[in-house]
Design a protein around this nucleic acid. Structure first.
Length: 597
RNA sequence: GGAGCUGUGGUGUAGCCUGGUUAACAUACCUGCCUGUCACGCAGGAGAUCGCGGGUUCAAAUCCCGUCAGCUCCGCCA
């Protein structure tokens, strides 16, 4: 038996007069008593099938029993629709298939939600029935474009001389970075593999191996809390090149990303992408992943308010902090309640308060007006280049807190007021510091990872002022989302050991954890560097989705569960014994261990 | 670890503030009628212990406490 000759959604006027066989799901049945219409759906779309006793009493009898999501095989003939009955909303709306035969291949229970776009149901229901959710056209579109994007990456990188090389999923746990997912070893009691957070070390070893250009579309694992754009397992476009400098990698990346935008989203982006230094990003945007779709830049006003009566301002400046402002056009009319909301939001990021001036038609209005003086208010207005109708917001604190909270406020307000320009706004963030001091850990930590090379001219500063050392590192940011990052790597053992020491890894520990890398660096490791892009995030942005869950076929919930398979699940005592594990039963884990029957 | 929002027939919501009818509406579902519909139409029907547990009260979907789940965010994520 031939299941089908055509896809439903691809039929058109070209097939008029042909006998066709279709297989698909019942989108909808419209029963007129003496005539039944069935919209039959497959991956490629819908077509209307007409069942009439005049054409085939047998097929008509079957159609009477059919319900939503039944799987049918339909034989019939393609006809032009009678004049006046065309449906312009349907791609196949000028034709229909008159059924001569129909078989129910499988009935279906009534689905828990509509199999159509734009549904409004709890996400947990969609996840529990993901196989139904994925039948919806917008989800099929995501799967199709995900495939397309992967293909574009492979073709592009292949054309540029890259080899796709697989790296282990079972590897070793290394210090630094995110929490590892661990896999217990059966053969070595008490030892564990770790799932890779990224193939970082392996791709460097491949460079030492002379592969020259490597890439992989690869799953990475991080056992950290989830967000709209963070899943415990996610996919990276990972690449590494030998004998290159920063410039080579940025250029290649731009070519790759521009090709993806064109082939996947039909969007032409202009190259090269703008670049901004880390310092500048922090200072103007208050974040290292600036959203450049809108202005609303942070402006330092410390010098203007250093001497004012308003203590919050003058004191912050005197104590080495700063005061920065944000001018929000058209927001002067904000109510007290709205401003309170902004204050609460800023507080989430450490701001102890939010000062504001409303530039109303009748003049500036603000609780702190009298503590600033008219001259200062006018100077602030000019510095922020704000006109009537603007709301001026200020935070005074340590620089870090000021930038963090105002930066967050900036994004919040842009979204609230719809200031984001449509489209894709890329920016490279470059010149990251190599390390920063972490007061919590009492040591220096790397901003990227410990294998990032410092700029040659900054190497002497490693010993004296490590925080001033700039890294050969770069991040690609799209619409305020960190899309990817990379660096030129250290390829000399002595320098690598020096950086390890700087971040508090003593020589013995470094040799224990990274001995294989240090050793490899002694066997002619070429200069090399690379970058990795978040594949899920890129797709999310290209498809205009709000979460990467919508471009991942089987994602996990915020509590890291798979609602479809109910993973993670209990295992048998036998399995645990083989792995030399004993589970401590605490709150939340009781009843975890089940016997397999 | 913390903050916020949400949870009511299969689904989406209203009701909750101000406790008191048979818990309402839409849609889906079932039955019947219907030969040009495409969100088909018309008529009828079934379907909810209001996430779970406890408390207050003569009386709880409604008030209080706890808890679970989903989402968003902070912390965390080199």
């Amino acid at each position: 038996m031939v299941y089908r000759t055509h896809y439903c959604g691809t039929l058109g006027e070209g097939e008029i007069g042909q006998k066709v066989v279709l297989a698909g799901w019942v989108q909808r049945r419209r029963d007129h008593g003496g005539l039944i219409f069935v919209d039959l759906r497959d991956r490629e779309g819908l077509v209307q099938v007409v069942f009439s006793p005049d054409t085939s009493p047998e097929a008509f009898a079957v159609a009477e029993k059919v319900r939503s999501e039944y799987v049918l095989r339909v034989e019939g003939e393609v006809h032009r629709r009678p004049p006046g009955t065309e449906n312009p909303k349907l791609k196949t709306g000028t034709i229909e298939v008159r059924a001569t035969s129909c078989t129910i291949l499988n009935p279906s229970r009534t689905p828990p939600f509509y199999i159509e776009d734009g549904i409004n149901v709890d996400e947990d229901l969609r996840l529990r029935y993901r196989y139904l959710d994925l039948r919806r056209p917008e989800m099929q579109e995501a799967l199709r474009l995900r495939h397309r994007a992967a293909k574009v990456v492979r073709d592009f990188l292949d054309a540029h001389g890259f080899w796709e090389v697989e790296t282990p999923m079972l590897t070793r746990s290394t210090p630094e970075g995110a929490r590892d997912y661990l896999v217990p070893s059966r053969i070595y009691p008490g030892r564990f593999y770790a799932l890779p957070q990224s193939p970082q070390l392996f791709k460097q070893l491949l460079m030492v191996a002379g592969v020259d250009r490597y890439f992989q579309i690869v799953r990475c694992f991080r056992d950290e809390d989830l967000r709209a754009d963070r899943q415990p397992e996610f996919t990276q476009i990972d690449l590494e090149m030998s004998f290159v400098e920063v410039e080579d990698i940025l250029q290649l990346s731009e070519g790759l990303i521009a090709t993806l935008c064109r082939e996947v989203a039909g969007v032409e982006v202009s190259l090269p992408f703008p670049r901004i230094s880390y310092q500048e990003a922090m200072s103007l945007y208050g974040t290292d992943r600036p959203d450049t779709r809108f202005g609303l830049l942070l402006t330092d006003v410390s010098d203007l308010v250093a001497e004012v009566e308003f203590k919050v301002f003058s004191q912050a400046v005197r104590e080495g902090g700063c005061v920065k402002g944000l001018a929000v056009p058209g927001a002067a009319h904000f109510s007290r309640k709205e401003i309170d909301e902004l204050t609460r939001y800023a507080a989430l990021f450490g701001a102890k308060g939010l000062a504001y001036i409303q530039l109303l038609p009748e003049g500036p209005k603000s609780p702190i007006l009298k503590f600033l003086g008219e001259g200062v208010v006018e100077a602030l207005r000019q510095r922020l280049q704000a006109g009537e109708g603007a709301l001026l917001l200020f935070v005074a604190d340590k620089r870090e807190v000021v930038e963090r909270s105002l930066g967050a406020l900036r994004s919040y307000l842009a979204q609230k007021l719809g200031l984001e320009k449509p489209g894709l706004s890329f920016v490279w963030v470059v010149d990251f510091p190599l390390v920063e001091f972490d007061p919590a850990e009492g040591r220096y930590v790397t901003l990227h990872h410990p294998f990032t090379a410092p700029r040659e001219e900054d190497i002497p500063l490693l010993e004296t002022e490590p925080e001033k050392v700039r890294a050969k590192a770069y991040d690609l940011v799209l619409n305020g989302v960190e899309l990817g990052g990379g660096s030129i790597r250290i390829n000399r053992r002595d320098l690598q050991e020096k950086v390890f020491r700087l971040i508090g890894l003593d020589l013995e520990e470094a040799r224990d954890k990274f001995g294989f890398l240090l050793e490899a660096l002694e066997y002619g490791a070429p200069p090399h560097g690379g970058i990795a892009f978040g594949f899920d995030r890129l797709l999310m942005l290209l498809l205009g989705r709000q979460t990467i869950r919508d471009v991942i076929p089987f994602p996990k919930t915020q509590r890291a569960q798979d609602l479809l398979t109910q993973a993670p699940s209990a295992v048998t005592e036998e399995q645990l014994r083989e792995l030399h594990l004993r589970v401590e039963v605490t709150k939340g884990s009781s009843g975890l261990v089940k016997k397999l029957s």
